[in-house]
Computed example of a mutant assay.
Amino acid sequence: MDRPANIQLEPEAEGSESGAKEDRHFVTALARGLEVLACFRSGDKTLGNQEIAQRCGLPKSTVSRLTYTLTKLGYLIQLEDSGKYRLGTATLSLGSAMLAKLDVRAVARPLMQELADFSRAMVSLGARDRMSMIYVENCRSSSALTLSLDIGSRIPVAATAIGRAWLAAIPERERVEFMERVREFDETAWPETERGIRKALEDYRTLGVTCSFGDWQKDVNAIARAFNPGGGLPPMAINCGAPSFLLSKDFLLEEVRPRLIETVSRLEGMLAR
């Protein structure tokens, strides 16, 4: 049902190093090692050095040294039969520690479940990571016909409702910089991508939500709204989506939209207290 986007190269992986050369405090080797870990997606079981090199935009010889070091430290595991790598158990401590401290998940979960039950859809809480939105919490309705995305799944910012909501919530300067990186990543697709973002920003002003009706996946409809979680965290967003045959555009806008806005408002109030 759901086909998460396979983004092979994060534009920031290349651009960050050029700016880092001017920053004497920036440790390039550490940054490259983290890029290797970050290139593993939720749908990836294993990756080889060549695949990692392509995704990170690094020479294969450099990647070979990085994967060797990360394997020695337990962050990667090399499979004997294929020589490819999978994430090691040491990475669990990084992700689990972050999720455990993300109090907004515990506060948001019951509110999200209410909305999921009403809409018969999947309601997700997401945060931006590079050029993607990463799901940090999911609530599903009792219906079996919901999307198959799980916690840790990544979807693109520019084409999705949840990503567009994040774009609508950030400062104008930051939004312009991010859109420029999207344009540089795919010049050919940029005109259509920009139209989608501009329309989403207008929707956010007039409707209070951003929309994606078949923009990311032709058979998926979704709306989203962003909020400030506080605690020094950047803006996050809540998304309500499902297959289009189950969740129509009219139902989303007329019935779900006011409930989503109310849900986010209640969440902001609870977090503020």
Rank of each mutant, 00 (worst) to 15 (best):
V209Q: 03
L115F: 11
F185V: 01
V157M: 15
T188Y: 03
A161T: 05
M131V: 02
T206R: 11
F185Y: 12
S142D: 06
G126Y: 09
R195A: 15
F118Q: 05
E184D: 14
T206W: 14
D215W: 11
D215A: 15
L125N: 09
A127M: 15
L207H: 05
G126E: 10
W166A: 04
V157P: 10
W216S: 03
P156F: 06
V136Q: 05
S142Y: 05
E172F: 10
I162C: 08
G208Q: 11
E177G: 03
E184H: 07
R181C: 02
D150R: 15
L201D: 06
A127D: 03
T188W: 00
A200W: 04
L147W: 08
R175E: 02
M122H: 01
R183A: 08
K199F: 00
Y204F: 10
T160E: 06
A158E: 15
R183W: 05
S124L: 14
E192D: 13
A159M: 06
S153T: 15
D186R: 07
G126P: 00
A116E: 01
D186M: 01
S142R: 10
L147D: 00
A144V: 09
V123T: 13
T210M: 09
T193A: 03
E184Q: 11
A169D: 14
V182P: 09
D186I: 00
I155S: 15
M133V: 15
V182H: 11
G126V: 04
P191E: 06
M131P: 01
R128P: 03
S142V: 14
G196T: 01
T160G: 04
G196N: 04
R195P: 00
C211R: 09
Y135I: 11
T188A: 02
A127V: 06
A168V: 08
E180W: 00
R173E: 15
A144P: 07
V209G: 01
A169S: 13
A189F: 00
T206S: 14
R195M: 02
A161D: 02
A165P: 01
G214V: 06
W216K: 01
A121H: 03
M131L: 07
E177L: 12
D129V: 07
M179A: 07
V123L: 06
S141G: 14
R183T: 00
M179V: 01
T188L: 03
K199Q: 09
A200Q: 02
M131C: 04
S132N: 12
L149H: 13
L149K: 03
C211S: 06
A121Q: 01
A158Y: 14
R128H: 06
G214C: 09
A161W: 01
S148V: 10
S142Q: 08
R154V: 04
E177R: 10
A168R: 09
D150A: 10
I151S: 04
I162Q: 06
D129W: 01
G126L: 04
L149I: 14
D129K: 09
F213W: 00
G152A: 06
A161S: 12
R164I: 08
C211T: 15
A161I: 05
L167E: 08
E194F: 05
G208Y: 10
E187Y: 02
A121W: 08
R140T: 15
R164E: 10
E174T: 10
R128F: 03
L145G: 00
E137G: 04
R175H: 02
